[in-house]
Amino acid sequence: MDKEKLELYISAQEIQSRIKAYGEKITKLYQGTTLHCIGIMNGSLFFFSDLLRQIDNYIVIDTITVSSYQGVNSTGEIIFSKAVTKNIEDKDVLLIEDLIDTGKTLSVVIAEIKKLKPKSLRVVCLADKIDCHPDFKYEYEALFDIKDEFVVGYGFDVDDRYRQLEDIYIYRG
């Protein structure tokens, strides 16, 4: 692994602390209900699983697979490899994403989820490049606002490399 290309950006301890706090918030908001949690794969895999372990409610789990990146560049084309498989009509839904960059992929995903007529839809992302998506029109919560840098680790990758790192790094490849 080319560790010399990586600059530590967010520590595993800081990530887990924010996830724990958000899990507590979700537990309170949805107390006494069943929450349908949909993770956007593959990038949200670690965030998705760590967050779900912090939610003390009944949950139903589903995933979707969407991509728009090749290497460090967006292709501009959004491809669904796996769609929602469980019925979410009239259900409370938490959509879990790793990163909002341009917001184009998440905009398409949210529009698709809304077509399935959930009772409510809350969107959470681990990290947000807030300056990169001035036209993003959906409500969401982000655990971290980050610089417009290419990041890896904790699910973020370059062609599937570096996902498994527990910290988040700026990639200087």
Score class of each variant (00 low, 15 high):
A21D: 14
Y22C: 01
Y22E: 05
I26W: 11
K28N: 11
L29F: 08
Q31K: 11
G32L: 03
T33P: 05
T34P: 06
H36T: 12
G39W: 00
G39V: 04
G43A: 08
G43E: 08
S44F: 03
L45Q: 03
F46T: 10
F47H: 05
F48P: 08
F48A: 02
D50G: 07
L52V: 13
L52M: 11
Q54Y: 05
V60A: 13
I61Q: 14
D62M: 12
T65P: 02
V66A: 08
S67N: 13
S68A: 11
Y69N: 06
Y69L: 03
N73P: 09
S74Q: 09
E77R: 10
I78K: 07
F80N: 00
S81L: 09
K82V: 01
K82Q: 11
A83N: 15
V84C: 00
V84E: 04
K86R: 14
E89L: 02
E89Y: 00
K91Y: 01
D92I: 04
V93F: 09
V93I: 10
L94I: 08
E97H: 07
I100T: 07
I100F: 03
D101K: 07
D101L: 12
T102P: 06
G103S: 04
K104Y: 12
T105I: 06
T105D: 02
S107W: 02
E112T: 04
I113C: 10
L116K: 08
L121Q: 03
V124D: 06
C125Q: 08
C125F: 05
A127N: 02
C132R: 13
H133V: 10
K137S: 15
Y140Q: 02
E141M: 09
K147Y: 03
K147I: 06
G155D: 02
D159L: 13
D160S: 13
Y162S: 01
Y162C: 02
R163G: 14
L165Y: 03
D167E: 10
